[in-house]
Amino acid sequence: MPKRNDLTVREGDTLTPGGFVRTLAQKPIISVFLGGDGREKDTVLLLGLVSREVRGVRSPFVYEASKNGMRDHIEVADLTAAFAVDPGTSVLVIGPVQGVKDDGSFVQRTGESDKAVILKPRDLDVLPQGSLFLAGRLPGWAKEHMTDRGIAFEEILSRDDFAFYNAVPTAEGAVYLAIGNTDFTLFGSNVAVLGFGRTGIVMARTLQGLGARVTVVARNPGARSGAWALGYATMDFGAFTTNPSRFDVIFNTVPALVITAEVIDRLRKDCLIIDLASSPGGTDFEAAAKRGLKALLAPGLPAKFAPKTASKILAMVIADAVAKNWPHLAPDLDRIGGELL
């Protein structure tokens, strides 16, 4: 059976020798995609085969599918309409990987005259009990509202599997940025990796493989000892703040202000900062600009530098999250995922 690699799936497709065919009436799920950054293609394909209908609110790939004539993929203008379903139907909401902000806004496909769509409590009121909401991050008010209404949710950015899978294209994208913004090789350079969590672990390993002299900076003694056991030099943030001038490139993964104005004043002027933490990052960018240092805020690198890989990663993690929350779908998702991914 050939693997699917485009948005041309139709009702009645048979995906296994034994025949995996469901009529629309046998699919009691509506999938709704909110916005997106371009890595949702495989997830749209995957969920399209277990959903009676796929709806998109400013979603680039649902919009593309609807324009390509897929009758069960519909672009919807507002969230209330997107979440409204017949009794007995469950709704699976896929929010953007970057998450929904506190004000309800999210990354979305917009035209020049489009006003941004904002998620509000009244939209969540339309979701039936037993629905599932998946997104990178969700604001506290939304989580409280869904808990009160019996709607399950999960924040994808909190998952270890998603973080480790994405750490690989993140590290490769960060290396690309470093090479493109310096006039020296990473080989033999003194580089600092701030933070030794999931992204920091892969970032340090990637840089070490290129021959860089890697120092891991971490608050936690356990993280520092783990980095030491893997062959990296280590220091805590106190030592880093006092003496950061030895570094040619700094890769930050800590989502808190750690590259302060004090640190920036002590860096060499040719030092490059690549901040991989979620916006607003962990760098005082204003202080860096005043000093003439090049500091790049670079979140979301997987979708920018490896969109095909990022798309498959998201689909795998979404499929696992759906299967754990709705176990009755696990066999179907495994079977279809083997064909698509």
Rank of each mutant, 00 (worst) to 15 (best):
D161R: 11
F162M: 15
F162Y: 10
A163V: 14
A163R: 12
A163S: 13
F164M: 02
F164V: 12
Y165M: 14
N166T: 00
A167Q: 07
A167G: 08
V168I: 09
P169S: 13
P169N: 02
A171Q: 00
A171Y: 01
A171M: 00
E172P: 01
G173M: 10
A174M: 06
A174N: 12
Y176S: 11
L177K: 06
I179M: 15
I179L: 14
G180A: 11
G180K: 13
G180T: 09
G180N: 14
T182D: 00
D183N: 07
D183R: 11
D183S: 12
D183K: 14
F184D: 05
T185H: 12
L186M: 08
L186P: 03
G188V: 12
S189I: 04
S189E: 00
S189C: 03
N190I: 03
N190S: 08
V191S: 13
V191K: 14
V191W: 05
A192N: 05
A192M: 02
A192C: 07
V193W: 06
V193D: 04
L194A: 01
G195C: 07
G195V: 04
G195N: 08
G195K: 15
F196Y: 14
F196T: 09
T199S: 13
G200M: 00
G200P: 05
G200L: 01
V202K: 10
M203R: 06
A204T: 05
A204C: 11
A204S: 15
R205V: 12
T206K: 09
L207Y: 03
L207R: 07
Q208G: 09
G209F: 02
G209N: 09
G209L: 01
L210C: 07
A212S: 09
A212F: 00
A212C: 01
R213P: 02
R213G: 02
R213E: 01
V214Y: 06
V214W: 10
V214Q: 14
T215N: 10
T215G: 13
V216W: 01
V217L: 02
V217N: 05
A218Y: 06
N220L: 15
P221T: 14
P221M: 11
P221G: 06
G222H: 10
A223Q: 11
A223W: 10
R224N: 06
S225K: 12
S225P: 04
G226W: 09
A227H: 13
W228M: 14
W228E: 11
W228K: 14
W228P: 00
W228H: 13
W228R: 14
A229I: 04
A229D: 05
L230W: 09
L230N: 08
